[in-house]
Amino acid sequence: MSIQHPANPELWQGRNSQEIEYWHQAINFETSAGKKQVALLGYCGDEGVKRNLGRIGAAKAPDEIRKMMATMAYHLPESLKVLDLGNVETVSEDMESGHQLISEKVRGLLQGNIFPVLLGGGHDLAYAHGKGILTHLKDKNERLGIINLDAHFDLRGLNDGKGHSGSPFYQLSQEFPDNFQYLCLGIQKAANPTSLYRHAFATKTQWMDMEEFRLENWDYIASLLNTFCGKVNKIYLSIDLDGFSSAYAPGVSAPSATGFTPEIAFKVMEWLALTGKLISMDVVELNPRYDQDHKTARLAARCVEFMLRKMYVRQEE
């Protein structure tokens, strides 16, 4: 069983002004025809993290991200409407029904030409999210490229026949073998055993190790992105906050002292915005229980704000 809770307007609080200058002033709660639209949808789920033996607490993440977004300065064009659709909550251990609901929601948003931004929650969200996108594209003869900024492949097999936060891309590769194009940036050897590299080779996954995923190596990174994105029509971006160094993202289920920096992640996001191929995105694995001064929640909020600004402000210029 899963529940979709409506958006909570009380989360969107901040400094007031006579014109729209902050996100809390710009957020909407109902769709409207005739405008470009972006929809925020939260995933309050810890079951996948629990099954993967991670630190529990990610279910509280979506509302924490909203609180950080609320006070940010708003620079998106008037022609764009940003919606808050509330949260899908996993009840008890029934993660699968929540995944089904999210897939249906994502598919419906894309059919309505609304850009989904999903806020997690465990990275098992990527299975539900990706399934919704791939189902939407199934009859359109379009190829999807999945780009994951992450320390982990998340290509683990199922546990007792059940998915978890380490298996989303494995599940997508099994269900959509003819349309599985996957690039993971920021992989850490210490976080991925040999079996996962075998899964990566078996699924024709492409990746870049964290040691190479650095700003001074940008020309090579851009070349890799160009080759990968040149073979697909649409791109789904997943940002796992545990890929960042714990200096920037301490509040995650699996922190890493040697992860990548926001500078290189934002450089990739800007590059992807310029392709015009991005169809959906998510930010996952925030764990407010272990955050420090809302540092990780603020980073998650900035990832969303930056990506949307680079996509839509440029379109208006």
Rank of each mutant, 00 (worst) to 15 (best):
D242L: 03
D84N: 07
A7Q: 03
A191V: 11
I3E: 09
M72A: 12
H129Y: 14
K105N: 06
G98D: 04
P6Q: 15
K310N: 14
A265F: 10
L144M: 10
K36Q: 10
H152C: 11
C303K: 09
W207K: 03
L53W: 15
S17A: 12
H99K: 11
I27L: 09
F266C: 04
P193Y: 15
D94Q: 04
V91T: 06
G243H: 10
D240H: 03
E93Y: 09
N179F: 13
R156Q: 04
L215Q: 12
G161D: 05
I114H: 01
K295Q: 13
Q171W: 01
G161A: 06
K60P: 01
A73N: 14
G54D: 01
K162W: 10
Y43D: 01
E96K: 09
K234Q: 05
G108C: 09
G48M: 01
T258Q: 04
R198Q: 12
S32V: 07
L155W: 00
S256N: 14
K267T: 15
E263Y: 13
M281R: 11
K162S: 03
I3T: 08
Y312S: 04
A301C: 09
H99R: 11
W12R: 03
L11N: 05
A300W: 02
Y170M: 08
G34S: 12
T31S: 15
E216W: 14
N233C: 06
A59K: 02
E47N: 06
R55P: 02
E285W: 00
Y220M: 10
V283G: 00
T135C: 05
T135M: 05
I279K: 05
Y197I: 01
N52F: 03
K310T: 15
R309Y: 11
A254E: 00
Q292F: 13
R51S: 03
Q292C: 07
C229S: 10
L119D: 01
D63N: 14
A254K: 01
L76S: 00
V232H: 13
R66D: 05
I147D: 01
M281W: 08
Y312T: 07
P262T: 15
D63A: 08
E285C: 01
A222Q: 14
G54R: 00
I65H: 01
I264G: 00
I27P: 00
E270C: 13
R314G: 05
L196K: 02
S195N: 12
R314I: 13
S238N: 03
K35E: 13
H123I: 08
